[in-house]
Design a protein around this nucleic acid. Structure first.
Lengths: 221, 221
DNA sequence: CGTTGGACGTACAGGTTCGTCCATTATGCG
DNA sequence: CGCATAATGGACGAACCTGTACGTCCAACG
């Protein structure tokens, strides 16, 4: 007597399945991004991701190989999405100070509105950047911003506006540090000092602050 | 006939057990700090901590109630240790600019040399600051630095050196953001830009940068 | 020198989580 | 139209992880 399988759940076969690999992958990625950003790499649950997806856990392993593969895909997509925004800057015609102000504004707004991205980067640092090391694509993406700042600094120096002893990477770090910290550490910093960092007034003030500080620093001496 | 325990491992009974609660707790805390800082809250393993301890897992539950309790204790101790250092600053006699430079120097060195602390704060932010909210002691600890900066700003304004429209919290955030970011994001930032943020030359340069930027900002206008 | 209570160790129960097996349906192509 | 292959679902297993039951050891003290 072979194993009968009569008790199959027999869900109403009215709706037929439609294969759509791209949609399935995108669906998984979107849900996974949220899960990883919320709970971290070790805190995220594959089952939880699968459940909130239109598809099943089997598909995660089919397309992404496993939890780590999925995490890497999420990380790459997050960086790529941010790149798309930054690359759109058109600054060649502006005077250096104004151009720099726009770059800072852009970074500020980016970090502020893409909290998932900020959290993923934070998580990757907790993980000591091990996954990022494998993703060569991510490196190229971020060099764009260095080129942009470099060009601005060059033009600024040519006009005698900026000092010459600061490298683009250091200027970028200063800007990034401030904008990133505001978002990444908003919970502890907010709780300790009892302030809401997302409140519009303070937001504006902070944006002004970092711009004034960076530009002031470049004009010193 | 009482239950014989013949198959007992029979470890050389030379060394007798000495009860030392304080030592046991400190031992657990030290190991746990490292584990949590390395793997995060969800990534840390109670078994792993117990194994690297002189004592057993039972004691973790005995003294700290569980994984969460242990994590909270680790977090509190980390903040307390940092406080002890910062409170030692003696700045009343210095002129405001020099005093501020010392505060910045202190913050820079603190973050740079206490990577465990930086990682724990990062982890707590990933966790949305939920544990920190329960630890009222931590809040008080951090208000000290605000008082210090406030006093410096007051004296600076009295002498007509500093502008009046920046709050101590905002100045503190600017300093913290830079110093914290350097350590917290050193993996991703270092990998992307292929630089070693702990290299002495760059370290010095960064310390100079943030000090010049903050002081310059306060002296603007 | 027997009793007592805090400090401690071992083993395990209960639940969770990742990853896979097997079966099934869709789709493209000859 | 039939077959090969890609895409999909559900259930399951094995490892892992937290927390606990239960018993032992030790120092202090009357």
């Amino acid at each position: 007597m072979p194993n009968q399988t009569p008790s199959r759940k027999r869900s109403v076969p009215e709706r037929s399945r439609t294969n759509d690999p791209e949609r399935t992958k995108a669906d998984i990625l979107a849900v996974a991004t949220e899960e990883f950003a919320t709970y971290g790499l070790s805190g995220a649950r594959v089952d939880a991701i699968a459940e909130r997806t239109q598809t099943s856990k089997r598909m995660i392993y089919y397309y992404f190989g496993g939890k780590d593969g999925l995490y890497l895909a999420v990380l790459e997509k997050a960086y790529a999405d941010i790149r798309a925004i930054e690359s759109a800057l058109e600054l060649d015609l502006l005077d250096p100070v104004e151009a720099l102000r726009r770059v800072i504004d852009q970074t500020f707004e980016n970090d502020d509105s893409h909290t998932d991205f900020v959290r993923l980067v934070t998580i990757e640092n907790i993980n000591q950047g091990k996954h990022l090391a494998e993703a060569t694509s991510i490196r190229e993406i971020n060099l764009r911003i260095i080129q942009i700042i470099d060009a601005i600094l060059e033009r600024g120096r040519a006009k005698g506006l900026f000092r010459a002893d600061l490298e683009p990477v250091d200027v970028h770090m200063m800007i990034s540090a401030f904008c990133f910290f505001r978002v990444a550490n908003r919970h502890t910093f907010g709780a300790i000092h009892r302030i809401d960092l997302s409140e519009p007034g303070r937001r504006q003030k902070h944006k002004q602050m970092i711009a004034d500080a960076v530009i002031g620093l470049l004009q010193q001496k």
